[in-house]
Design a protein around this nucleic acid. Structure first.
Lengths: 123, 123
DNA sequence: GTATTGCATTGACAGCCGTCAGTTCAATTG
DNA sequence: CAATTGAACTGACGGCTGTCAATGCAATAC
């Protein structure tokens, strides 16, 4: 999965023009990139993205029994997607009696949202 | 990959209480969910996310030869990630002589960014 | 108690993903 | 022309992902 992200100084440059003027470096560090990518990956499936979408506006009010019929998927598969979202820290759940209610963890999407809307930050 | 997303009316409800008050529906349709998830999936790898991050602030100025040493990865692997980003519509490339320069497609991240920052939209 | 219901877990399977070594190909240089 | 260089492509490999059928399990209903 990978990558060091050290700004190793450009080597090999003796022929024609230099390939590009400025030395380039990332502004997100490895740690942040891992967190952001983890969230993005969890959203990288249409079903999970729609689950998040539904849960966002019915926080704490939606039981799994109502989520399942929204998709042409088996109940275990929906349960699996919810688990993926939970492991990524995007949703939490609460059991009330026989039913399980899910909700979007507050601010779980915030860091990604912020990064995405950044425009040429930091010189 | 899947799901129909038809609001099939809740069936099976005869025992105790009703499981949840409001009938739930998604506000992103299947088409939009597919697009959003495709972008999110492309960002769902730390390397690709950092590539986007670098390209965003050095648009059109960064050749591949300068991207490769930023990661502990082989050149073909970085090239592969760039291809994934290109196929997702996030970046474009331009060849100038021997070198290839990449740039983030304007507004490619916009739809996802907008969706992420939405707060209880549409009733 | 037994039966039923809602949800999670397991096991299995095909398909995709990230990685590299090796190769190819175009453009540049001599 | 031949040699070199930057970057993309190919093939292969292990590992992960999405899916379902079957099962497990706790809570409710009878």
């Amino acid at each position: 999965m990978a990558a060091d992200l050290e700004l190793s100084p450009k080597t090999k440059r003796q022929a024609g023009q230099p390939c590009c003027e400025p030395v380039v470096y990332p502004s997100v560090d490895r740690e942040q990139a891992l967190r952001l990518a983890e969230v993005a990956r969890a959203l990288g499936d249409p079903v999970r993205l729609q689950l998040i979408d539904v849960l966002r506006k019915h926080a704490g009010k939606v039981c799994v029994c109502e989520l399942v019929p929204l998709f042409a998927l088996s109940q275990p598969t929906v349960s699996h997607h919810l688990k993926v979202l939970r492991q990524a820290g995007l949703v939490g759940s609460e059991r009330r009696g026989l039913w399980a209610y899910y909700y979007v963890v507050p601010d779980a999407l915030k860091e990604l949202s912020t990064w995405l809307s950044e425009r040429e930050a930091a010189a």
